[in-house]
């Protein structure tokens, strides 16, 4: 756990050293063009801004000093301030962004489970039937669709040029401030439909395949045969004996699914222009705001690590046999 954590930070730090150019030059030039310094101030002001910037972000220190300073800040969950807006703490902004990304991810994984489990069970119970073949083929097609293309196609079909059912940009309408509480809720819900559909379809495809395979495996077990032999109804066999056992692996997937949803939101959030963590990371990358990029990557890596841990714990919780091993 701890060595992996250190490895993660080291890798992030090393990858960031690949960055071309000088962030200080970029940032001080940006200050000039944004008009914060008078244009006539000339070379010496730019130079001093540049020096100040380097000093402020410790860019002149040796690499290992920079690394340990960064690591020390990390330990207190301090990701520093944004290059482009030093008054903005990265941690605060990240937290604000997470308040958008995490609920979306939770909602979409909940939906995935709600659709995928019945679909997988249905498919497994009627193995070989036409319905099973159709649903397997459908899920297979879903599985191969490129995420960003699905987003684009949904925008084409349901956006302004198509049926015009859903808004396609952002999370709130233009005059959201004037809405009542209920109106705001409806507005946001309406905006969320397409992004959540884009986030959910992949999970449905993946989970329902897992569910179908797990269910088929369980249906072959001796205890299921015993349950059938002792005269239980098919319904009881499937829902009481088989389903509960085949849910175990699928539920433990949840822990590793959530970080993937949070981390993989770069594409979806930039398609729908949702100001979540993915867009924050992507925009940070575009303007070369390294503290932002480092913070988001480190954060999602650590989240994934915790997800793996949670997955192990969940496994032991839902399946008591694990403890006796």
């Amino acid at each position: 756990m701890v060595p992996t954590m250190i490895g993660i930070t080291l890798l992030v730090f090393l990858v960031m050293q690949l960055a071309p150019g000088d962030p200080a030059a970029l940032a001080s030039a940006g200050d000039m063009s944004s008009g914060s310094a008078p244009a006539s101030a000339g070379q010496s002001d730019t130079q001093s801004a540049y020096d100040k910037f380097r000093e402020r972000f410790h860019l002149d220190d040796p690499l290992h000093v920079q690394y340990f300073a960064w690591l020390g800040n990390l330990a207190t969950l301090d990701f520093g301030v944004e290059f482009h807006d030093p008054s903005q703490s990265v941690s605060e902004e990240l937290l604000r962004r997470l308040r958008i990304t995490v609920p979306l991810a939770l909602l979409s994984s909940l939906l995935s489970y709600l659709i995928a489990i019945p679909l997988g069970v249905f498919s497994a119970v009627r193995r070989g039937s036409l319905a099973d073949k159709l649903s397997t083929a459908f899920v297979f097609l879903l599985y191969s669709l490129p995420t960003f293309w699905v987003g684009l196609m949904l925008i084409l079909a349901f956006g302004a040029t198509g049926f015009d059912w859903f808004p396609v940009i952002g999370l709130q309408g233009k005059d959201a401030a004037d809405f009542s509480a209920w109106g705001k809720f409806v507005d946001i819900a309406w905006h969320c439909v397409l992004p959540i559909a884009t986030m959910t379809y992949g999970g449905v495809a993946y989970l329902s395949r897992q569910m179908r395979a797990g269910m088929l495996e369980t249906l072959r077990q001796d205890y299921v045969r015993t349950a059938t032999a002792k005269g239980l109804s098919k319904r009881a066999v499937i829902y009481k004996h088989a389903l509960r056992n085949s849910l175990i692996p699928v539920i433990t997937i949840f822990a590793s699914l959530l970080p993937i949803l949070v981390g993989g939101s770069v594409l979806i959030e930039s398609i729908f222009n949702i100001p979540g963590m993915g867009l924050y990371a992507f925009e940070g990358l575009l303007v070369r705001d390294y503290p932002v990029v480092m913070a988001t990557v480190t954060f999602s890596a650590v989240m994934t690590l915790l997800g793996f841990l949670l997955s192990d714990v969940l496994y032991a919780l839902v399946d008591p046999r694990i403890k006796h091993d």
């Binding site: 992996t4 490895g7 993660i8 981390g263 990358l285 988001t296 990557v297 890596a301 994934t304």
Partner: peptide
């Protein structure tokens, strides 16, 4: 394990 923790797509994007 370290590599598996990363959001690989974003890492590729960065590089």
């Amino acid at each position: 394990e370290i590599f598996q923790c990363f959001p690989v797509f974003f890492l590729i994007l960065i590089v």
